[in-house]
Write a protein that binds this DNA or RNA. Sequence first.
DNA 1: CGGTTACCCTGGATGC
DNA 2: TGCATCCAGGGTAACC
Length: 280
Amino acid sequence: MPELPEVETMVRGLRPALLGATLREVEVLDDFLLVEMTSDLFIRRAGGAQVERVDRRGKWVVIQCADDRGWIVIQPRMTGGFWRVPPPRPEHIRLIFRTSGTGETVWFCDSRRLGKIAWYPNDSTAQAAFARSQGPDALVITKQELRDRLRGTSRGIKATLMDQKVLAGIGNIYADEILYQSRIHPSRVASGLKATELTRLHRAIGEILNHAIAVEGSTFDAGYRTVLGLEGGFLATNAMYGRGGQPCPGCGEPIERARIAGLIGRSSYFCPRCQPLPKA
DNA sequence: CGGTTACCCTGGATGC
DNA sequence: TGCATCCAGGGTAACC
């Protein structure tokens, strides 16, 4: 669930607790999430470090420690999330930072344990990890970059938008909203978009993601919450995701829910009238 | 090599 | 009430 807007909201929420603070005590409650290191090693690396920056890269949370000590990179993936207040499900706590400086405690919870916690010793190893897994961030990619990255593939546009190596940050929910606003069918071949469609797509990426950040992301069921435990507002007024069978806000046609090739088992929601698929 | 799919994991919803 | 099944989807690895 945490896509770019949720992770951006997390990072903004974490900064008051972590920026300039010292990670006085690091507690690992589940070493399954740690990437190629033991709990003891991670605690030795991060314990006592001062936090210099808290940033987002795609869907990843990046905590840069002062004095070139190293980088903590946390991938919330499906169900990971941070808390600055005691989390409601303590059995899902995987990592705790107790700080001095701000005196706050930060909890990382992850019910499904799909999240990852990595350590990189310096800028170049961290940047190499980003380059291996991620293309340009969806919030800053230019139209020309987007065009170049969609070129030469026969894949569908939705699968391509969700490929983090093409551009980083878009997942299933926002892909559907972006494609609806762009009036592009999710199965369209990514390299076959017309110039006007590419312009609409690039604009929609920025508008949808920035709007979602402004309302603090998407919450449904027991999923994502802000660091203070609040629900995000995006799905209260969104157009497509999760609205199969409801009338399209643009034309009234029932919203279609389908499984689209190249997206494994994920559901796609779109309006068959506003997002027509040209016959092959 | 590009594209597709199985799988990692758990909790909540649904079905019998 | 209890048990089985399905679904959620971010990301990696194996496969064709």
